[in-house]
Simulated scan of single mutants.
Amino acid sequence: MTRFIACLALLTLIWVRPVMAQDWQLANADTLAPATFLILTIPRDDPEALAALGDRLEADFNVPLTAEWPLNALDVHCFVFDARDVADVQELIDQMEADTRIRTVQRIRNFTLTEMYHSDPLLPMQWALKGMQVLPVHSKWRGEGVRIGIVDSAIDRDHPDLAGQMVDLRDFVAANPEPVAEAHGTAIAGVIGAGVTNEGIVGVAPGAQMVGLRACWQDGSTPGVCNSFSLARAINFAILNDIDVLNLSIGGPDDPLLAELIETALQAGIVVVAASGEGDALVYPAALDGVIAAGQGVGKSVPAPMIDVLTTAPGASHRYASGSSIATAHVSGVVALMLAKDPALTPRQIAQKLSAAIYATETQPMLSACKATFGPNAECAL
């Protein structure tokens, strides 16, 4: 088995033109069941020894190697092993953790795209932009020069509201991807950055450069699902490719590998915005220190529109969407407006400015894009 250590940017798969020339053993993320597939990270002190090490670990622990790829952002190599036929997976994990060749080991975790469905055709079109006082900012700033990484399901780049808004699309779910368009990712992209030169909707930051990082896929029972394998690869790409804002409209269990990657992203100056969840407590990764949680009425989350928001849907259509996923998209868009005005802002400074830009409406607290961008004493009347 031949393996080469190379830049992950050369290994990722472009939706429109799949990159086939690669030597990493990848797998479709949606085939890796949670709890019974294990991700191991290995130090890259001796890259030439990695090929033999993969074979030895496979033999020593009697589990088949399913996938491998480099996480250059952490300077490690990852192996995925299939432990479905192991009687006691936890015992296997304990044995692997005791092995000095292995840096970390964990189970694959699943995450879900957070959303609630509500539909009311009588709601004012795009009430959220008015409620968040976005339009006064558009007179000066629209997110120009800011790159937003949308870790989500597949985005319909051909939608009239999104045509020209997506500067890149990458697929970390399918080993050999084909062009697809999925509802959740398309909705998030519309809220963040739908363009202004059309007859459809306009996003919070229509001047931003959006990068679609498909790490989630639709399934029949939920808006979508992601896992540690696909999310780690997508976040790694974001760290290595000049992403300024990382939108994570997902929620799930604590995950050590993703926590390490998100911490690395924050240290690199990337602003990470994540969904607070729909319950009474912050979900992961919104609960991580340094991550900006977005939602309504949950812990320390930044309040943003999340009920019956008109946005884009696959096939040149529109729909109403709800949930903390939608709130996350709004906050990511506001962050892009802030960075367009002042690119030197750090993630911590942005979080402080967002907290100072919350104002009281007749029904609930709400983030003001105007106050976040121009200051808490700005005159923000439409």
Rank of each mutant, 00 (worst) to 15 (best):
A357M: 08
K130E: 02
A154Q: 14
S221T: 15
G193M: 05
L10S: 07
R84P: 09
A73R: 13
L367Y: 06
D94N: 13
A27G: 11
E199Q: 15
T2H: 14
Y284M: 06
A205Y: 00
P18A: 13
G207M: 08
R103D: 14
N241S: 09
T346P: 14
S153N: 13
M306E: 13
F172S: 00
P70E: 12
R84H: 10
I270M: 06
W217V: 08
P347F: 00
A73C: 15
V302Q: 03
G333D: 08
Q296Y: 08
Q209E: 12
L26A: 01
A205M: 02
L13S: 09
D289C: 08
D55F: 05
I102A: 14
P223A: 02
I102R: 07
D75P: 09
E362G: 15
A313S: 15
V191W: 10
S368V: 08
V331L: 05
G185Y: 07
V173N: 04
A29I: 05
A351S: 07
L337C: 05
F374P: 08
E91C: 06
A59P: 09
I292T: 01
A286Y: 01
I262E: 06
A360V: 08
Q95A: 10
E263D: 06
I270Y: 05
L382M: 10
M210I: 00
L162Q: 12
P347C: 00
I292M: 01
I148F: 00
T328D: 00
T311R: 08
A294H: 03
Q133R: 04
I292G: 01
R319Q: 11
Q267N: 12
